[in-house]
Amino acid sequence: MQQSMTVKEAMESRHSVRKFVQEPVVKEGLQEIINQARLAPSAWNLQPWRFHVVTDPEMKAKLQDAAYGQQQVTSAPAVIMVASDMEDVVANLKQTVHPGLSEEKKQEEVANLAAFFGGMTVEERGQWGLAQTNIALGFLLLAAQGAGYSTVPMLGFDPIKVRDILGLPDHVKFAAMVPIGHKDTEGYPHHRHSVNEIAFFH
């Protein structure tokens, strides 16, 4: 990977790209991007995000079909499915409790979390985890840009088909499908609301 940009540079230079250079993304580069994305904050540090990295051409072709034929899916050398799996989180709550806590505090924390999420339906837990996972999605996009890669976050796909392709259970939610690679064309320049249109200081 190239030398990282500052966060500001990554924010200002990132554009969605839909055509990529036909060269593979090295596994180590993808691992480092995910290593940075996993540092995103989450309530109670539950970290419900899971990253499914697809580079196999046949599987990417299936994902393209699930994404209604959108060409960027197979144009990109890799596709990252950013998912949330709250049922896995709830089944392994001890893994998210900070190791610096006393054993008594750890047990108390696990009991409180189990009671909180036990009062939700699977769907409610899924939506809660998805909101947290969207934070990690933002981190992922900036980490990729900072490392010299382009991305395009996509929501236009059939989640049922994607779960089937990846062999995932029905409760898994997706924050986005993210084709990633080196850009072959420039994205459109930013067209954003001004600060005065979206920020209200009270």
Rank of each mutant, 00 (worst) to 15 (best):
W128Y: 13
W128D: 09
V26N: 11
T74V: 15
G126E: 07
L101M: 10
R163F: 13
E104A: 14
Q107I: 11
E32N: 13
R14I: 14
V73K: 01
D85N: 14
A67D: 00
A143G: 05
G181V: 02
P179L: 10
S150V: 02
V110Y: 04
V122G: 00
S75D: 15
E108N: 03
S150Y: 02
M59L: 09
L63Q: 02
T74S: 13
S42C: 14
P179E: 10
E104P: 00
E104N: 07
L101S: 08
V195R: 02
T96W: 02
Q132R: 07
F200A: 15
P99V: 01
H193L: 13
Y149M: 05
L168T: 12
Q64Y: 01
E104F: 11
A40W: 07
H15I: 14
V79P: 08
V195P: 03
P153C: 03
T6G: 12
F201E: 08
E123Y: 03
V79R: 06
I198A: 12
D65I: 14
A136S: 13
M154S: 00
Q132P: 10
E87F: 11
G126F: 04
I135M: 04
I198N: 04
I198L: 15
A115T: 07
R192P: 10
M177V: 02
H202G: 06
V97Q: 06
Q31L: 13
S16L: 04
Q107V: 11
Q36S: 09
Q31D: 14
A199L: 15
A67K: 01
D65M: 10
V7C: 10
G146W: 01
P169V: 14
W49A: 03
E87L: 13
W44P: 10
V195Y: 03
K27E: 12
A61D: 00
